[in-house]
Computed example of a mutant assay.
Amino acid sequence: MQSFEFIDLILFLGVSQGVFLAVTIQIIQNKNRDANKVLSIILLIASIMLTGRLFYFRYSDSEWLFRVAAFVDTLIFVFGPLFYLYFRRLVFNETPLYKLHFSNFIPAACMIGYYFWTLSYSYEEFFLLFNQGILVIPYFIMETVGIFFNIYYCYRCFQLIRTYQKEEKKNLSYSQSLIPFLYSFLITVLLFLTLWLLSYSKVYFLHVYTSVINYNLVWVSIPISIYVIGFYSLKQPEIFRMPLSKKNLTRNKERLEGQAIEDLNQKLENLMVTEKIYLNHKLTLVDLANQLNTSTNNVSWLLNNIHKSSFYDYINTYRVKTFVEKIEKGEHHHHTLLALSMDSGFNSKSTFNKAFKTVIKDTPSNYIKKLNTI
């Protein structure tokens, strides 16, 4: 058994915090439940892998612990699919609940098959084959597949973020501040993959072994990743999950014509001008469609084709105009700009500033300065 080292402490802390966060998310976080179940599984798998690596570092002379450590390495092939599943369940509302196809786990199954093949060799025979270089090619192939397999799922997660950004403007009139969380999550995973790729390239292509960038650094990055992911997930409030648009839906079924357009547009104008429905901080496309007694597709079609606007821009234009009216009445002399923006229907300073600049083509402070000079 090796002496206790600093990396052992890091791995131990990673294991303990991974288990703690996996359990805490289920106990405290009652929100985003379907997504958080997947996140807890990810955190537990990461903890298991760190435990296996801890066994490998400290008990490599023990055959059964070495075998356990070798088996948990196969779990690296399930991270990518699970990350994608977590992202998809977190941001999209799908019925039935989205599940991964078995084909996503074929590489993991192949890796497990390879592991059981190695069991046909004794502990001494395995290390003899490894030292002779006979197992280098299989390990090279598996590691190559593992790296690019996970990079592929990071790319798919990035595509989900782009799709979410498009759907957000179609369905929400406010910002959920979810994008920074998703990018932080993805960047953390990419950091781990980058370190892994660097270590892999140095070993297999450059045949360089250094104490700066090596596999130890890769394993140290996992506890850091666990902390970042778990911390952000605990902070993340319940979010409005977007309906995922189906490409095979025909637009003609929801297209409005003639009097139907005029009637729906008149109802919409009444809700906006008379009832001021836009003052609802968390107004969604579903809410508006329910008020209009029609489908969300009809409302989207009306906004896109008649008003030439997304739901997000349409609602926030009314909010900006309400804010401007308050400024022109001099209410900013008695209230903060943030308070006035909230009274106008905005739910955050960032959403307000962005919408104001889009509509007025200026910042709120500059607009007020110009108004005072008139």
Rank of each mutant, 00 (worst) to 15 (best):
T296R: 00
S295C: 02
N304Q: 06
I306Y: 05
T317M: 09
T296Q: 04
Y312T: 10
W301G: 03
F311S: 05
N316I: 11
K326V: 14
D287G: 04
T322M: 01
N297R: 02
H307P: 03
S310N: 12
N305V: 08
I315Y: 03
N304S: 08
L292D: 06
Y314F: 15
I306A: 01
F311L: 02
N290E: 15
N305S: 13
E328G: 06
L303H: 06
L302N: 04
N293T: 10
T294E: 01
N304E: 08
H307V: 04
H307N: 12
L292V: 10
N304I: 00
F323I: 08
Y314T: 12
V324C: 13
E325A: 14
N293G: 09
N298W: 04
T317G: 09
S300H: 08
L303G: 06
E328L: 13
N293Q: 08
N290S: 14
I315V: 11
I306D: 02
Q291M: 07
N297P: 00
Y318H: 15
F323L: 13
D287R: 02
I306K: 04
I315M: 05
S310H: 11
Y318C: 11
E328K: 14
N293A: 08
N304V: 00
W301P: 00
D287P: 01
V324L: 14
T317D: 13
N298K: 12
S295W: 03
I306E: 05
D287F: 05
Y318T: 14
S300K: 07
L302Y: 02
F311W: 04
N293W: 03
I315Q: 02
S300R: 07
T296L: 00
T322C: 02
L292P: 03
K308P: 00
N297Q: 05
T296F: 00
